[in-house]
């Protein structure tokens, strides 16, 4: 290399590394912490765990599973390969359909869902992740994701809200620095919420506003129609059961105004219980299980990260009682 180029590159490297170090220190001083960023590639790594595993456990659902069940703890307690396939903000019916089509899956699918999530309107929400896994997941992406994860684990500046373009946009819009996210994600996609680092009242308020808006814009399907649509879901469950697998629907805890609104729009007797009477899969409702009574839901929908081990143990105990995992497994 010509000497002038070598010098230019060495100098540039020193300047950029110095700037990166200063930026990292600055972000940490502002209270930000590093976290793995969830994406389709991380989901695909989990989906890969199901391939070739005998009798695996697939954890499906949305944020209430992803931010409440410790995948590692389930794996250790049961001795069965466990994959965290829940997706924050997306209901899991598409993932159930995908497991039904995958003839190699003969394990247990734990599906965290409520009556709203079973509504046909929400069935395709996770299809994007499945399409990615089926069509775009390659060895190259896998290696990229495996290399990227440790960088995100240790560097705050690897979070996309801190890209200079995102910060410049905020500056132009007169917005403050990015929201100090109270979620820390582990590489296996289990998320830990730390409510001590955030304004719980504001989050609770916003969650309620969003839910009121949602039910105003998307009123529930009539119970008969809702139930009729679920015949297809039942067929997917039976497909898994026919080859020796098991499926369980689990209505995770919610509380306060959130629960009131859910109950008002999807009355348990007309929806959840109606399906429970004909569903080929067992359906666990949190209010029926004493293990879930003691949990505090700071934002009415999720538990604090500190409660995840206890919640995971509670879920395992319930699964044992329903005969879905072996009693000795715990």
């Amino acid at each position: 290399m010509a000497r002038r180029w070598l010098a230019a590159w060495l100098l540039a490297l020193v300047v950029v590394l110095g700037a990166a170090a200063a930026f990292e220190v600055h972000l940490r001083q502002l209270g930000y912490v590093p976290t793995v960023q969830d994406d389709e590639d991380l989901w695909s790594l989990q989906a890969d765990r199901l391939r070739g595993a005998t009798n695996p456990i697939a954890l499906l659902g949305a944020s209430r599973i992803q931010f409440a069940v410790d995948r590692e703890r389930v794996e250790q307690a049961t001795g069965r390969t466990t994959a965290m396939l829940a997706v924050n903000g997306a209901y899991p019916v598409a993932a159930l359909r995908w497991l039904a089509k995958d003839t190699s899956f003969k394990g247990l699918a734990v599906i965290g869902v409520d009556s709203r999530g079973l509504d046909r309107r929400h069935w395709e929400m996770q299809q994007r992740w499945i399409d990615h896994y089926e069509h775009r997941w390659t060895y190259a992406r896998e290696i990229h994701r495996l290399l990227l994860t440790p960088l995100q684990e240790y560097l705050v500046m690897m979070r996309s809200p801190f890209a200079w373009v995102a910060l410049a946009r905020r500056e132009l819009a007169g917005e403050p620095m990015p929201f100090n996210d109270y979620l820390v994600m582990r590489p296996d996609r289990v998320g830990f919420l730390d409510y001590e680092r955030t304004d719980v009242a504001a989050i609770k308020r916003q969650r309620l506003i969003d839910l009121v808006d949602y039910y105003r814009n998307y009123p529930p399907a009539p119970p008969a129609k809702w139930l009729a649509d679920l015949a297809q879901v039942s067929s997917w469950v039976r497909t898994i059961q026919a080859r020796g697998g098991k499926v369980v629907f689990f209505r995770e805890p919610s509380a306060g105004e959130h629960l009131v609104l859910d109950e008002k729009n999807y009355p348990r007797g007309e929806y959840w219980d109606a399906y429970a009477r004909i569903s080929p899969a067992p359906m666990i409702e949190f209010r029926d299980e004493p293990e879930f009574r003691s949990f505090v839901l700071p934002d009415t929908s999720h538990i604090d990260g500190k409660d995840i081990p206890r919640f995971t143990d509670a879920l395992l105990a319930v699964l044992v009682r329903h005969g879905l995992i072996a009693p000795t497994a715990q």
Partner: peptide
């Protein structure tokens, strides 16, 4: 040359 290298490196490094 250094300026070009710094600008290009920064654009990549600070764009996660």
């Amino acid at each position: 040359r250094t300026a070009v290298a710094v600008a290009a490196l920064c654009a990549v490094v600070f764009s996660p």
